[in-house]
């Protein structure tokens, strides 16, 4: 049921977005805290003419300290919110499963806005998954290294994107209380859809729903109720729906 609610939330975001349009707006942000938002009328030799919402016209110099967000490096909306489309970014995300046992994912990415439609990044993370197979519960923890790509389907204020990541999860388990266990990692992947919300600063909040995979294998011993040892050798593909929330900055 939760996944349907999430689906409709995403749809609602999209419908809101579709109703909005952006035009050639630009933002001039000065180090002293002054911010000017206006429609870009022209640009010559770095001098940008902006018509402010008050209908006044100002000229800002791209090379004298102001940070300019315009169609060259951003998608700017009439209310001053924007997305970056050029440059580098960091992103941190926290995820949890909506349909299977305990799951907690945390990752950190460093990436580049390749163009208004595409971001590419590399990242690492720490992921914990509990999976139940054949009546046994296996806890696995992996450190992941991965490549990541994000394609923006829309360019509205909450913009919808498809994403995918592919990498390797290195087992990071330790024996606990002397119960012997040996875990091996494997391929780590996720793909799905997300929505990112425009803001008036460089930090962007985003929500994603992804289909997650992690291959794991190994040996683990269990003790039954009276302390007898049961040895298992497992080979599992962990699959689940993962909701992630995170920030680009």
């Amino acid at each position: 049921m939760r996944k349907y609610i999430l689906f409709f939330c995403l749809l609602q975001c999209y419908v809101n977005a579709i109703a909005q349009t952006n035009s050639d707006w630009a933002i001039a942000s000065y180090k002293n805290g002054s911010i000017y938002l206006g429609q870009k009328l022209s640009e010559r030799d770095g001098l940008i003419k902006l018509r402010l919402p008050t209908s006044d016209t100002i000229t800002v110099n791209r090379f004298t300290g102001a940070t300019i967000y315009d169609s060259n490096n951003a998608v700017v909306f009439s209310d001053g919110k924007f997305f970056l489309t050029k440059g580098y970014f960091w992103s941190t995300n926290f995820g949890f499963s909506v349909n299977r046992g305990e799951t907690a994912h945390l990752d950190l990415l460093f990436g580049q806005h390749i163009n208004p439609k595409l971001d590419l990044a590399i990242g690492f993370g720490s992921e914990f998954n509990e999976s139940r197979v054949a009546g046994f519960s296996f806890d696995s923890q992996v450190i992941t290294l991965f490549g990541y790509g994000r394609y923006y389907i829309t360019s509205m204020k909450p913009r919808v994107f498809a994403f995918a990541k592919l990498g390797y999860g290195f087992a990071a388990d330790e024996s606990t209380e002397g119960i012997p266990r040996e875990h091996f990692g494997g391929i780590n992947a996720k793909y799905g859809l997300g929505v990112q919300f425009a803001s008036r600063n460089k930090s962007k909040f985003q929500l994603t729903l992804g289909h997650y995979f992690q291959k794991t294998s190994g040996q683990e011993s269990f003790l039954d109720l009276i302390g007898n040892e049961i040895e298992t050798e497992f080979d599992i593909l962990i699959k689940r729906l993962v909701v992630t929330f995170g920030w680009d900055f």
Binding site: K3, N99, R100, S131, R132, V133, A134, F136, G192, L209, H211, N228, I230, E231, T232, E233, F234, D235, I236, L237, I238, K239, R240, L241
Partner: peptide, 17 residues
């Protein structure tokens, strides 16, 4: 697609007495 394919899968070889 998401809802169809989210069960963990695999095998467990169990050794016991």
């Amino acid at each position: 697609f998401f809802t169809q394919c989210t069960e963990d899968s695999g095998t467990v070889e169990v050794h016991y007495q």
